[in-house]
Amino acid sequence: MVESAMPLKIRQKSVDGARDEFEIRDYLRLDLFPHFLCPGCGHGIALRALLWAIHDLDIEKDQLAIVSGIGCSGRLSAYVDANTFHTTHGRPLAFAAGLKLARPDLHVIVITGDGDCLAIGGNHLIHAARRNLDITCIMMNNEVYGMTGGQVSPTTSLDRFTTTTPMGNQEPGFDACALAKGAGATFVGREVTLQTTALKNLMQEGLVHKGFSFVEVISDCTEIYGRKNDLGSSPEMVLSQKRSVLPRFDGTAVDKPFRAGNWETGILSRQERPEYYSAYRAHCHKVLGK
């Protein structure tokens, strides 16, 4: 046990010209606040973790592109003071692919939701993972279509009530991380919003990773899904994440199951594979003798 295993790095306020402490307001379009998310929505917690990771990685806001799809998660991009793109339902990864290919100098982050990414956009996810373009995909999984009023999603747990499963959901759901990994994503991780610092670090690892990184955020829809299923108040829902999660500090420990799917949290897979754009460019130059 040494200090380096401590994942948390908050910087002190600048005294000697060093970097400023993370102030989320520096990264927000303040005119738009308060944001439109419901009280207790986990997406806000996740967005904070993301911006914190961006801050600690010293990513210039001008060089940051956030591409989102449709749904509650899709609206998050608008709140960030960066180059932001709120695209069509399910397609942010495809937009991001074009953007990244056109502008490899930009840091391209996709914010998507479980419906956006796994249902209507499922095809784009698997091919983004296969292609391994240097994009970080943050998928907020709250098990429900919140924006449209709470319909069943590809990750809704069994027996949960939604507006389209009035008798309880009987469809099996996706393990999004296993899907991404199977499709070839070179970085896959999952974290809960409760473990904000671990989530921030996971996102940071994903952002640093050269290639396609997929981070699933276990987020809570408290107002719609929580109420419909009697999952308790916002704090109770956030706290309930703790019951089955053992945060990993060393990056290797096997974690405990979370939710019905027995899912693990932490970095689930990390591997080296040529990044798409650089490999494409290098190959073309080689063939053309440039």
């Binding site: 591409v67 793109f85 695209t87 069509t88 397609r91 990864l93 495809a94 937009f95 991001a96 692919a97 074009g98 953007l99 990244k100 290919l101 056109a102 502008r103 930009l106 095809n123 784009h124 698997i126 091919h127």
Partner: peptide, 20 residues
């Protein structure tokens, strides 16, 4: 880039243009 489907092709085309 050959995308995974027609929708993605259109999206990537727009994404590229957004990039300038």
């Amino acid at each position: 880039v050959q995308m995974e489907d027609e929708i993605a092709s259109m999206a990537a085309c727009l994404g590229g243009s957004l990039g300038g």
